[in-house]
Design a binder for these strands. Structure first.
Lengths: 219, 219
DNA sequence: TGTGTAAGTAACTACATGGTGCATTACGCG
DNA sequence: CGCGTAATGCACCATGTAGTTACTTACACA
């Protein structure tokens, strides 16, 4: 082969073959496609095309469409929990800690709209992909224990009600934020309002913080 | 043809051809299939088979897969609003009216699990099917006005807070119930509990009523 | 009792789908 | 330098898919 051809291809991309980079491009493309069209609606050809990878690679790295979906989903769960860990809840006063948690959830959904539709897809197929994920289990346990600790601390300080279960609280915080976004399209029709205008968003997050504070705090 | 054959077929089914019955069978089968597998995952062949109808009839009555989905969805929305209308909220004391409304939503989701997944599918495709439905618009407006009237009455009687928006309240009531069911599969993995055991259900509905009462009522 | 119309059927098509077999090529390592 | 292995690409397959064509059959009504 002519040496100048090789030099050229090297100068354009420093590494023609980069397994990690390819994997990542596939995962990003898959995240987009799965979240946009659901698990069944997603097309592996579309993912490969968008990832600028050959479809063969997709099967090489992830075995199957479901294997790819599983990986995407696990990464997403890992990501939200990692971000959550960064919140400095322990050193905030009780109401502020609570508000921070609610606001974090809200903003995470805004910044990562894919998360919601991916989770919806996973629930449609009854969580088959994550059912036996040890990673997810570990990370979830840590997360719940943290919220429980927060609750316990504030109960001791006589700010929060005593009978609140951390799981129920978490479900409630997630629900009032999650539902608003996942159902914003049918919601727009039913309530005849734009769910995503800055004013609507502002109104809703304020309402949600109020909901949670009233639920948890002693009055 | 031999006359006894005709008599027999009449004695088995009084009407061999019944357009309305066929339509209904198709709609019921479609509701099952769409809610189980989503819009993209649903198979028209499976619907036709389950409905004991020929696939051609499906296209004859509903034009397309999407047309069928649209009809299913509209019927479901109509159904929940009709059931809701039967609640005698106007003649109940304030807290009882609120509790009745929350409990109705909860129980409706339990009795009609298909509703939730159908709505999820519709939101995945950005509500294209119901976007311009006049029926849905009418029925939704009526529903919101009713809740607003309830709020207004109780504000006058000084039981509820004054600044509650009916739409925000409705969204919140729906969310804390809806989310619990739609995410029960991933929830079971994350929270390591059975979301559908009688005890879990009891605990959650109690928690939800408490959440809404604390949100709306003056303390 | 005959007939037009609507209900119903089976076989089919054109195409898109997830997934593979196999050849090729780049790169790291000795 | 060269060689084995992992990365990549191409062409292909079997099957499943929504939707249709062309036909038959039951029933309401005259």
């Amino acid at each position: 082969m002519p040496p100048e051809k090789k030099r050229m291809s090297i100068s354009v991309k420093t590494r023609v073959r980069d397994a990690e980079a390819t994997k990542l491009r596939i995962l990003e493309a898959a995240k987009k496609e799965f979240s946009k069209n659901g698990l069944e609606g997603a097309r592996v050809d579309a993912i490969a095309l968008d990832a600028k990878a050959n479809k063969r690679m997709l099967y090489h790295y992830f075995k199957s469409k479901d294997g790819l979906f599983r990986t995407v989903l696990e990464r997403e769960y890992l990501n939200i929990r990692t971000e959550e860990t960064k919140l400095d809840l322990e050193n905030l006063p009780p109401r502020a800690a609570l508000e921070t948690l609610v606001r974090f959830t809200w903003e995470y959904y805004i910044k990562n709209p894919e998360f919601i539709t991916l989770v919806n897809s996973e629930n449609l197929c009854q969580a088959v992909h994550i059912k036996n994920s040890p990673t997810l289990r570990t990370v979830s346990q840590k997360f719940i224990r943290r919220i429980q600790a927060l609750l316990d601390r504030e109960v001791r300080e006589n700010v929060f009600r005593e009978d609140i279960d951390a799981a129920q609280l978490n479900i409630t915080i997630a629900s009032i934020n999650y539902y608003y976004f996942t159902n914003r399209f049918t919601g727009a029709v039913i309530f005849e309002r734009d769910f995503t205008s800055p004013e609507a968003l502002q109104e809703r997050i304020t309402f949600n913080i109020e909901t949670i504070c009233r639920l948890v705090c002693k009055n």
